[in-house]
Design a protein around this nucleic acid. Sequence first.
DNA 1: TACTGATCATAG
DNA 2: CTATGATCAGTA
Length: 223
Amino acid sequence: MTAPATVTELISRCQLLAGLTLGEVAAQLGVTLPANLLRDKGIVGQMLELALGASSGSKAEPDFPQLGIELKTLPVDARGKPLESTYVCTAPLTDVGLQQWHSSWVCRKLSHVLWVPIWAERSVPLAERVIGTAFLWQPDAEQQALLQQDWEELMELIVLGGIDEIKGAHGKVLQLRPKAANSKALTEAVGRDGEPIQTLPRGFYLKAAFTAAILQRQFGNLV
DNA sequence: TACTGATCATAG
DNA sequence: CTATGATCAGTA
């Protein structure tokens, strides 16, 4: 699948996928679906990237570079409520003194997102999960402010050596949580007295309540 | 049951 | 290890 040249083309591809099951899309793409997501948590996202023509690989750039759009799948239950928080990006833990919100990875990644809801309750077999209606989203002033506030608070803690005091509950809409192969992975960070320390790599996540509000504004109140 | 901390696969 | 894609699962 080649990259979509325009937003219109991207949306039109999404409309073709809406209502299909993951099993049907996998068959079209020649992808073998695992029995569950235990050992393949990212397969759904990667399949949608393939189906929509996003650039593959682990490059630190938008999924659709030409359009500046980031693709995110969003697992939802039967009522359209998100089942999980949404990973945004890795958090920088060193050399963050001069970081500014508007040039941050979080701000840039979230500036233009294509959300693809997937009906994905754990009791439903992977192949039977249905792709929903995708939509483009850009944070409004209020959402932008909430994100910036949380981001600045978290980054200040990181700069001041408070990394190990940060819990997942810190932000209102944005949270900092471990993002690693396991709890023994280490990366460099700033300690309490400004000294280099080793700590668990972290990532920024959107809390489920925040993505729930995005869905609600897009589709209205369900149930 | 929701949330926070832990974990899995793959590419470079 | 870092960055991509995320969900799992124990516990409060």
